[in-house]
Nucleic acid binder design. Sequence first.
RNA 1: CGGGGCGUAGCGCAGUCUGGCUAGCGCGCACGGUUCGGGUCCGUGAGGUCGGAGGUUCGAAUCCUCUCGCCCCGACCA
Length: 479
Amino acid sequence: MARNITPRSENYSQWYLDVIKAAELADYAPVRGCMVIRPTGYAIWEQIQHYMDEAYKKTGHVNAYFPLLIPYSFFNKEAEHVEGFAPEVATVTHAGGEELEEPYAIRPTSETIIGYMYSKWVHSWRDLPVLINQWCNVMRWEKRSRLFLRTSEFLWQEGHTAHATAKEAQEETLRMLEVYRQVIEDDLALPIICGEKTEGERFPGAVNTYTCEAMMSDTKALQAGTSHFLGQNFAKAFEIQFQNREGGVEFCWTTSWGTSTRLIGAVIMTHSDDDGLILPPRIATTKAVIMPISTDENYADDVLLPRAKELAAQLNEALGGLHVTVDTRFDLRAGDRFFTHIQKGVPLRIELGEKEMKSGTVRIVRRDTGEAVSVAMDAVCPTVKELLNNIQDNLYNRAKKFRLEHTYKAETYDEMKAILEEKGGFVEVYFGGTPDDERRIKEETGASPRCMPLAEADKRGKCIITGKEGRLTIFAKAY
RNA sequence: CGGGGCGUAGCGCAGUCUGGCUAGCGCGCACGGUUCGGGUCCGUGAGGUCGGAGGUUCGAAUCCUCUCGCCCCGACCA
């Protein structure tokens, strides 16, 4: 167990790594750019999967699975797609001791092979829409890696849908963006800005790309999820066609959308402090830990432990799941026991010692603020429920406050440059430039257009580059 | 792939420039005592083929060559 964590203000990258290691979330694997997700980290992923799958039940999506290996030639069928992904695709050239006639790509994303399969499955307007999601791993050979944020291999979900009309597909694209918003904001307590990507930031092969942008606690941006309207690009490349009601043949309109284990990185970078991880209650598998405290072994075993177990059972009943555990490590000192849970981000610590037994109370300490309250034994369940809700809200609110405090407006390019250099954060400007302009800005400032917020999609103003009409756009340095 | 830096105990490092006792230190770990409500204090101990290969030398963690890997900044990206 790491004893000390580098302060966030001192070295942000190191702090981030320390939090991950101290909370035992992940570790480096002996494979370039790859990570091992440890049980504690994977538990968070399972929570995210749970909430996403719950959402799919409402939206009518179903899970399926497609192969890890994709014939490389599939990528060549969509010009922009191959151009965008070729540099980071890993390929399999040998198998069974022989060189393969055609190499396989290890999927960096599955539009191609799923498009191929959809072309076999879709024939009639009655077959539409196809609403499929897959939970899987993908591989992108990035130049640089960072645990959870960017690793060569990562876990994600990718949804792929096919529709009869452009309107339906566009609606689907935004519907899924909204699903992401709900899970990310309500369950992960990450305030985000939903918006449209500029042309230069679009998914390779997409007509339009939407995104959920979050601000990390160093004021840099992180894309937390994306949803793409693919138009008929992939349908034409893979001949996904259907006969309409009138008997004519049409190409489908498709969408794709994804979120990854990067969300875990976003949770870490948004909520944690210098003591370690802070988990929003809704994604914490252990929501509270009960700590019987006594130096008297007999008292601990005979009096405290039974009471603690009883309390845990009551709480688990009230919370509807196995969310409360009892820390029985009496061989460690109280401070050491506290810190293991603090570092792992357990939202509540419930202390039960001789003092509490006498007064018929427990002491409840919340991880997000460190505040402690004494609560009568029979009021524990409602108080814990309430505190968990408070913590969930507080984490969201304080992250949102932080983002607002680090969001600026600029009228001119020079103004934006000055803000990015001096303060960092998000800068709202009007922008109507080309991908070349975006590239230039990135080179000169290190910042890229994060998105054009949907909430203010109608706003128009003078573009900081061209001087012509532009849309409200957020620029920021990003992960 | 460009620019910088680093591989010495589980983790973090010193030692390398200027080759030389038995390769050190802090944390962690094990054991004993002492403490015990936010990281007690003291003692004892285990743990290393100094990233790998080759070379120079009486002698290499230290110098030379090659190689593998990692980190940071950039470009690329969920």
